[in-house]
Design a binder for these strands. Sequence first.
DNA 1: ACGGGACTGGAAAGCGATTTCTCTTCTTTT
DNA 2: AAAAGAAGAGAAATCGCTTTCCAGTCCCGT
Lengths: 345, 345
Amino acid sequence: MVRKSASGRIGIADVAVKAGVSHATVSRVMNGNFTVDPDIAARVRAAAAELKYQPNPVGRSLALGKTDTIGIVVPDLANPTFQAILRGLSRAAAQDGYRVLIADSFEVSSEESILAGEARRRCDGLVLCAPRMSDAELEEIAPSLRPLVLINRTTAAAEVPSLVVDYGQGVQDIAEHLVELGHTRLAFLAGPPRSASNGMRLQGLETFKAAHPQVEVTMLEGGSDFDTGHEAVDAVLESGATGILAFNDLVAMGLMSGLHERGLDVPGDISVTGFDDIPFAKYTTPALTTAAVPITELGEQAWHQLRALIRNEESAAPGSSRYQPRLEVRASTGPEKAPRSTVHG
Amino acid sequence: MVRKSASGRIGIADVAVKAGVSHATVSRVMNGNFTVDPDIAARVRAAAAELKYQPNPVGRSLALGKTDTIGIVVPDLANPTFQAILRGLSRAAAQDGYRVLIADSFEVSSEESILAGEARRRCDGLVLCAPRMSDAELEEIAPSLRPLVLINRTTAAAEVPSLVVDYGQGVQDIAEHLVELGHTRLAFLAGPPRSASNGMRLQGLETFKAAHPQVEVTMLEGGSDFDTGHEAVDAVLESGATGILAFNDLVAMGLMSGLHERGLDVPGDISVTGFDDIPFAKYTTPALTTAAVPITELGEQAWHQLRALIRNEESAAPGSSRYQPRLEVRASTGPEKAPRSTVHG
DNA sequence: ACGGGACTGGAAAGCGATTTCTCTTCTTTT
DNA sequence: AAAAGAAGAGAAATCGCTTTCCAGTCCCGT
């Protein structure tokens, strides 16, 4: 009969009794401390095996002051970008024996810092993914969240590395590509207003406009999902633009679908571009021209940065790094046809 | 100057000192125990606020014997189906103040039970998603994992509710639909061999074949992602089938993309169907005919079942439930054209 | 043969909370 | 006014484990 120590599960005490030693010795054996007589160690191991003893991680965490768990806060778990980051992070962390706790803020920026704090206290470190909170708030809470790694966001707070994708450059590359194809009237379908990556894209477009004064760039309201793109068809057509830069691949796909329903040809009538190069982008018809972001790798790198912080708080803070998107020209962009209207304005 | 109790963070002891009371009293106040004098309670609260005290969840967990966290084990975090389940689960659990810890087994079935055990010990309950392990192993470890909820898998172990989608019925519905359109030669692009849901589909097809002896059904090897579908083009064409049942939407999309590259028309030349009705399915060209599975809802229901188990182990074990897929006829299926070859075999 | 260093393993002190137990102190009742 | 009862708050036990501290053992050199 297996003794149960008060609670329902087998504890270190049960093993100690069965092996006829103190629980301190059991602990030593379980943790590979070699100051234990091999015979006794064997006896303890046998007892542990027979009882199927597994140390309670909560007790362990309390004693050790670490949980072997990291947290990640994302604004929207439905977004493929964040899913990919999560996947990369989880995979990399698992290889080092760490688990990941997820927190979805559902784009409610006011919840973010609370969520982050709660997650952080249960973990050894935190990855904050494209937080929607203000710069001021971020800078204020960042220190209490360390070890902390930021993704697609930066902060002035010390010891907080951040990994950011250069969306501004990516958007410029795409716009250049469209211009080279002869397009002179572009439209940008924007993303969520609070998204920093949307801000970076807007900045990139400003730079582009400065360099290409002859190109007309219309800004359209948007979002980050299929429906946004699908619903934007009218606005896009009204703009008269022939080259559309969608916030991301999802929006681009929704838009293409909508254009298709209107009987318009992509890229014959209108060229459409996305951003991110999600796995689906290759398989749309026509295949989507987009800017590829090594997004899973981003999650992986986030772990490496976090690991460095966790392992050695003194270590030279690993600098923040910047990822350059790579233009992927596919079939959804083509040369501008004869303009539908000769003059405008 | 804020006192730090040994560790770097502010503990209950600091608040106790600052408020001039014992930590027992602080605990009482923080937990809404009303046997504390209002004046003292106010003093404690003030001290806690000033020190920005937040109770350490690990210490709390040890004392309370609960972590307010649940775990989920999935075979592949890259799979949209599991992502959707995770999303539903996370959202529902968050509403009740629970967090979720994720574990990805990367389709390595031998790791699954270890992973599950480790996750379970850190949590108050576990959701096992489409486990790839054998029935015997599942039944053996299930009791030690309780409270446990299974998704797309059942077990004989007691007190383990499971939520399963009736893939068999769904496949039959799709096949019927194709037959009604005049197709007499079908092909099934199978999924991962160890997947139970693949097994259910195969069973469904057997039932279908028994009911429709005149219909030829070819079985093809496959997988669960885009590339599988894309690479299956040759095999599909060789089979001579005019109606293709892909394992899921991803495979269907990959296949359609491949067929498109070969200059074939869907559904003109070949009809293609998917399974799951992922958000993308609506937006492919042509829009994908598929069987819709309320997958996010599945994650949500998993939480409800788990919650019932956690809250009251005595409660009538909530029965297992079965979800019926709903046929979504879209544009990727159409009537069979004149057969490309009159006779075969 | 005896003192000192290397080993072993038990006892006990945390880790940071919650909670029971107990002792005051203040009310209330007779 | 005395006894019984209620209420409030501190001391101490717990949760399950790790780890320091320390008391014995054993072996070795002198």
